[in-house]
Write a protein that binds this DNA or RNA. Sequence first.
DNA 1: GTCTATAGACGGATAGAC
DNA 2: GTCTATCCGTCTATAGAC
Lengths: 199, 199
Amino acid sequence: MASTAKTKEKDAGARERLMEATAQIMLEEGYAAATSRRVAARAGVRSALVYYYFPAMDDLFVAVMRAGADASLARMRQAISADEPLRALWTINTDPRWTGLYAEFVALANHRKVISAELKSYAERVRDIETAAATVALRAQGVDLNEYPPVAISMLVAQIARSLGNESAIGMTEGHEEMRELVERFLKRFASTEHAQAT
Amino acid sequence: MASTAKTKEKDAGARERLMEATAQIMLEEGYAAATSRRVAARAGVRSALVYYYFPAMDDLFVAVMRAGADASLARMRQAISADEPLRALWTINTDPRWTGLYAEFVALANHRKVISAELKSYAERVRDIETAAATVALRAQGVDLNEYPPVAISMLVAQIARSLGNESAIGMTEGHEEMRELVERFLKRFASTEHAQAT
DNA sequence: GTCTATAGACGGATAGAC
DNA sequence: GTCTATCCGTCTATAGAC
């Protein structure tokens, strides 16, 4: 087996450790703290090695984003065929690790063109899949898709979930309980196992 | 009249110009680009002057945030007594200038404790006022406030508005049209001038 | 109140040894 | 593949002249 191919799960190669370190630092201290020296230190290597694997820091950021995005997209594709697509969407977008990273990338994109283009492309794919999931759920309930466009519903679910995560990150939890209950009631109404509205 | 007091509207003092420059740079290139040298250059002064008005860069950021927050809060207090409180809320939170700055501060807060505390305190005051506005609107329509907690409704309106702004900033507009129409219909239903549901 | 000058730290990135 | 060493730029912040 080639050394660059995926070997054992544990004790990953330097490249993987660098990416993981970058994600952690971004989450804990913000993207500005993810410098070549700091990510190298956390990965247990010297900073020059960063530039061996990634020509420039932007390339490292893009790699981290792609990895996270791909993982998220995979989860979402599964969600479409789940029992409750909308709930799956909600759950995925509530994952603090990914929403935190996503928020950092949005901020990063604000002044790095490479990141911005990459983020937009990812965000569009995410929206497409989320919309597909919402379409499944709404159609199963016989909802008028013109009155409640799936793309809007999927935005609602995803964005509200992310908002809760972002706010929690700075200790803001006012109204979260009420919002969660409201969403819970909404999701129950669209649980695809109950095609007729009981009670 | 003292020289530190508010003089003419135009050609403001260095302190005000520094704050304005900081806000502009944060919006255009992200908070990381708002360095003492760059904000000073845009304000037309030397970087050392930044430290005359603001002991440390964090103090400058906090000042910019407070100014923006106070302006937003003032608009929101007016919104409560507006004809359509929810619509006013929506309009304020769609203002790209403020939502853009807000997003940057959220990112900044991720690794600056001073900013984090300040942001949280502001966010809580905003939520309280937004909730008051939502309460007015919902009660006028005879909505069951237990079923639809004003705090959750205000979060919905504000967060979705901000989300649209954040996405537009990176060129993501997929589904925005549908979302705007959905919100528009929602807002029309709660226009407080029509206490009974016409049509 | 605004400036010049500078200290001291840290950053991105590269050259070249092993 | 990983390291040491280094260049050069930018940053925050301070000292002190005007």
